[in-house]
Design a binder for these strands. Structure first.
Length: 266
DNA sequence: ATGTGTTCCTGTCCGC
DNA sequence: TGCGGACAGGAACACA
C-alpha cells in the first residue's frame, strides 16, 4: 500500500466493533498512502488527505493481499470472501481485504496530527521494544499494584502490545508465576523480565507470528512461532524450560486462559 | 483509584 | 450428523 493511491475502498458493512467513520469510502478513495506505521496493536495508515486510518485486528481480523500478476492480461482478482468487510483496490490492481469473522476489530479515521490523542491510543503505555520500556519504568509501574502479573502485563496502559500468548511465554521464560502480585516482584526479577519480553516478541516476529487457527501473514502463509511455545496452549504437556521437569497447567485469570508451569514459575 | 467480570461476534471442536 | 457447551489472538465498559 505504501506510496500507492487507493483507487477505491469498498466498505461492505457499516460497523465492526464500533460504527465505521462517516463517509469512510469517500475519505479513503483517491487518497495516496504516504506511510504505514504502527502503535501498539494499531496499524496506522497515513493518507495524503492528512487523515490517518486506524486499524485494529481484534482477535480474528486479518489483512490479506492479492497481487495482480504483472504481464498477465486476463486475470481476475478473487471475489470478496465471507467476512471481507473493507476491501481496498490499489492503483496497481492489488486488492487488500480486511477480513474479520468475529468483528472485534476496528477502524477509524483521525487527523494525522492528532492521531496519538485519539481515544483508542491516548492511554497506551510504552512500546515493549522501545527504550522507554526498561527496568526502572516497569518497576515504577508495578510498585504497589495488587493485580496478578498476568493481568499487569496484559494491561495496555502499563506496556502496549503484549497479548495473551506472549505474556504467558514471557512469564514462563522468566520463571515468574502469573499469579504473583505485580507489586511483589524483586528488582532482579524485573531486570530479567524486561529483556525476556523483548526476546519473545522479536523471536515471534521473526517466525511470522503465531497461528493458532485464523492468523495468517499478509501473503496468506501461516506463522510458525506456535511451534516454539514453551507454555501457551500446552496443558498437561511437559514444560519446555531447560532443566525443568514440570507439567504445564491451564488456569483462568480475569476470564482468560493462562498456561504456566507450577514447577519453575514462582 | 484499582481490580474483576461481562460483553461484543462467529467459528470450531469435543462429548454425547 | 446433530446438538449444546466451551473456548478462541482483545479490550472497553460497568460495577464493586
Amino acid at each position: 500500500m505504501e506510496g500507492l493511491v487507493i483507487r477505491h475502498a469498498d466498505v461492505r458493512r457499516p460497523d465492526l466493533r464500533w460504527p465505521l467513520p462517516e463517509r469512510m469510502s469517500e475519505r479513503l478513495s483517491g487518497q495516496r498512502v504516504l506511510r504505514l506505521r504502527r502503535r501498539s496493536k494499531y496499524i496506522l495508515v497515513d493518507l495524503s488527505s492528512e487523515e490517518t486510518l486506524i486499524i485494529h485486528l481484534g482477535m480474528s481480523g486479518r489483512i490479506l493481499i492479492s497481487e495482480k500478476p504483472l504481464g498477465v492480461f486476463h486475470h481476475t482478482l478473487p471475489a470478496p470472501e465471507k467476512h471481507d468487510h473493507v476491501v481496498f483496490e490499489m492503483e496497481t490492481g492489488a486488492r487488500i481485504a480486511f477480513n474479520d469473522a468475529r468483528r472485534f476489530g476496528a477502524m477509524d479515521l483521525a487527523p494525522t496530527e492528532l492521531v496519538e490523542a485519539h481515544w483508542l491510543l491516548k492511554d497506551l503505555g510504552p512500546e515493549p521494544l522501545g527504550n522507554v520500556f526498561n527496568e526502572d519504568y516497569l518497576e515504577a509501574r508495578l510498585r504497589g499494584r495488587n493485580m496478578p502479573m498476568k493481568t499487569a502485563l496484559l494491561d495496555q496502559k502499563i506496556v502496549a502490545g503484549l497479548g495473551n500468548i506472549y505474556v504467558c511465554e514471557a512469564l514462563n521464560r522468566a520463571g515468574i508465576s502469573p499469579r504473583r502480585k505485580a507489586g511483589n516482584l524483586s528488582r532482579p526479577q524485573i531486570a530479567r523480565l524486561v529483556p525476556i519480553i523483548r526476546d519473545v516478541l522479536n523471536e515471534a516476529i521473526a517466525a511470522g507470528g503465531s497461528s493458532l487457527r485464523d492468523y495468517r501473514q499478509t501473503d496468506g502463509e501461516l506463522g510458525y512461532f506456535q511451534h516454539a511455545f514453551r507454555a501457551y496452549d500446552r496443558e498437561d504437556q511437559p514444560c519446555r524450560t531447560p532443566e525443568c521437569d514440570g507439567t504445564i497447567v491451564r488456569i483462568v485469570q480475569s476470564g482468560r486462559s493462562t498456561y504456566f508451569c507450577p514447577g519453575c514459575q514462582r
